[in-house]
Amino acid sequence: MSDNILQRARRTFLLEANALNDVGLLLDEAFEQSVQLIHNCNGRVVFSGIGKSALVAQKIVATFNSTGTPSIFMHAADALHGDLGMVQEKDIVVILSKSGYSPEIKALVPLIKNFGNKIIAIVGNKDSYLAQQADFILNTSVSQEACPNNLAPTSSTTVQMVMGDALAVCLMELKGFKDDDFAKFHPGGTLGKKLYLTVADVFTANEKPMVLETQSLKEVIVEITKRRLGVTAVVDEKGQLAGIITDGDLRRMLEKNTDIEQTVARDIMTKHPKTIDPAELAVSALDLMRRNAITQLAVVAGAEYQGIIHIHDLLKEGLI
């Protein structure tokens, strides 16, 4: 029974992957022209569809908006009952349909054409009504659905989705859409934080543990305990970072039977510790910690010690 389930699952992946490959080979000048049309559009891109195609259209709208191409979704059925008013003069309309013959689509298309808006069809039948009426045809024909009855939209909706992604990616490249642009549209959540949250945004909420090179071991222990970060920076008289002492350094020092009474900060500090500039991204601090198997970094601007960023800070921000 388990083997049959896995075989069916793998068959689904194979059928949909083959469908994607086949549709990729169907791309032609109409795709390039559609990308250029959208790129030069002074309005929005209005996506529409019915049934499963409508759900795919909504996902594509979300992708377009998050990558800098203003888009809206208009359900084909609702368009016939008032929502058609959302289509503005300079908008481009993209209609998704497997058959291209749905009654709602057949009723919607002439209305849009009367408005004078350009229509791009993402359609699974090049001979359909929708394809014949569209200005540009993006062929998403599939030879077989992954559904064992060859009925439920599976392969066909997958290729529609990827066609939308292909449009979005090409538009991103034409626009020169970069990480900074992406961050503007994703300010919330982990994704946004990885793109804009800096070390300075995080470490300033912490205590600033610090001792001079000549301070005693007792003073070092008190500072580490008081600041609750498991570490203290060691600075010179100018406030510049000379080294760092962690609670682990203290334990290792005690194991060596060191003369505690004579020990000062400079004797046990780690010289040339890993540091990070406050302007760096917080995710860069996380990467540096992971690569060096450490949990704290000294924050340094130039040579001046600013504070400590701890891996717990990054955990609180949801970066881990």
Rank of each mutant, 00 (worst) to 15 (best):
V234W: 00
I260T: 14
K256N: 04
M210A: 12
V264C: 09
Y196S: 15
D267C: 04
I245G: 03
R228A: 12
R252D: 07
D259A: 05
V199Q: 09
A205P: 05
E280M: 12
I224T: 01
L297R: 08
K226G: 02
R251L: 11
K208F: 12
G307P: 02
I309D: 03
R266Q: 10
V300Q: 10
K193P: 15
R291T: 10
A301D: 15
L288A: 12
R227F: 13
K271F: 00
S216V: 10
G239L: 11
I311G: 01
A285R: 00
L195N: 09
G188L: 07
A265Y: 06
G188H: 11
E261T: 09
A282N: 12
T198L: 10
K316A: 15
K256H: 00
E223H: 05
D313R: 06
G243L: 02
T295D: 14
S216R: 07
K256A: 01
Q215W: 13
M269V: 01
T232V: 07
T246G: 02
V299I: 12
H272S: 15
T198A: 13
N257T: 08
V202M: 10
I260A: 15
E255I: 01
K218P: 04
Y305P: 01
Q306W: 06
R228V: 08
M253N: 04
R266I: 11
T295V: 11
G189M: 14
D249E: 03
Q240I: 07
T275Q: 07
A298R: 03
V234T: 01
T295R: 14
A200K: 10
S284Q: 14
L197I: 10
P278V: 08
L281W: 03
G192L: 06
L191E: 10
I309Y: 06
A200Q: 13
D236H: 01
A301Q: 14
V202K: 15
M289G: 08
I294P: 03
L229F: 02
I260W: 14
V300L: 10
L314W: 14
L281F: 06
L191A: 06
M210S: 12
L217K: 07
P278Q: 05
M289R: 05
P209I: 06
L297H: 04
P187G: 14
D287F: 06
A285W: 02
T263R: 02
